[in-house]
Write a protein that binds this DNA or RNA. Structure first.
Ligand code: FES
Ligand code: FES
Lengths: 149, 149
DNA sequence: AAATAAAAAGACCTTTTTATCTTTTATTTA
DNA sequence: TAAATAAAAGATAAAAAGGTCTTTTTATTT
């Protein structure tokens, strides 16, 4: 449904929202390490997110990425839109050219409520609100801590 | 979530279930045309499905693909398992290494019920039953008929 | 038996996605 | 001002997914 690129971007941005700020910027390397994604790839993605004003960056020593108040008002939807395109969230589960109730595929009426639900989740809360909720509810952005094997 | 390969395989098999039988076999070409998928690609997929005893085939003139009573007892799950692997239906929506309620990602509790639902749909009905339901409820396997533009 | 129709098998090609590497630019600090 | 640090930009590479083509095998029809 979502590309890896989008998934990396979402998790990394939420991580950034929780752990960085204008006063405490973070380098790509640190973030990539923290949530276990390939850092040069993440660097590319972050470039796009900066461009889309979803996150901010400053070059040089003591530089890095962070999220301003303004940035934090963007949504997870905005991330997806800028990496994959929003249509990726609305494709037919079985690959029909369109997903709509007029011409439903065999699983449309199972899939459609889910899609509405997740779209709402990604659209109706700002990244800052979403991030707070994630932290409050003890959701995970990585399972790195489980690699005890 | 599912690869195109799986989607093609599911749609084509359901089409076969509805339109072919031991007495009325169908060639790849006809099926591919009917549901609008690339025929050499579908040929490959059907090879795998024959191997997995999900569909049957006879070579030569008057040959083609069809579904026996025995075949019809398989499930859509079996198709997915043989093309993509079932794990594709159980991956974390945001790409965490595992999807489980002990270590949920930010959207786990939205995604998990949907996954259970769709898995049930694909597992608890035989392909023949599923196909009948699809026909009875007027679900579509292609939107070819809409290409009036 | 010869011609033909269709699947099986496997090699091959193309595009997209994922990932890396290198150079440049901006900023800070010593 | 020089050295160091970190992002920006862009070229490149590797892998996976998607798709095509050719040859072989099998069955049927004439
Ligand atoms: S038509 Fe297939 S999911 Fe809506
Ligand atoms: S943990 Fe992400 S969907 Fe279950």
């Amino acid at each position: 449904m979502l590309s890896r690129a989008s998934k990396y971007a979402i998790l990394s941005t939420l991580y950034l929202a929780e752990h960085a700020s204008k006063e405490k910027k973070m380098s790509v390397k640190k973030i990539a390490e923290a949530i276990d994604v390939p850092s040069p790839f993440l660097a590319k993605l972050f470039q796009q997110l900066v461009h889309a004003k979803i996150i901010s960056s400053i070059k040089g020593p003591k530089g890095g990425f962070f999220i301003t108040k303004k940035n934090g008002e963007k949504t997870v939807c905005d991330i997806i839109e800028n990496i994959d395109g929003l249509h990726k969230l609305n494709e037919c589960f079985l690959g029909l050219n369109e997903c709509d109730g007029e011409n439903p595929c065999p699983v449309h009426f199972i899939v459609e409520p889910f899609k509405r639900n997740i779209l709402g989740k990604f659209r109706d809360k700002s990244i800052m609100e979403f991030s707070k909720e994630v932290a409050d509810n003890g959701r995970f952005l990585t399972l790195k801590h489980l690699d005890l094997d």
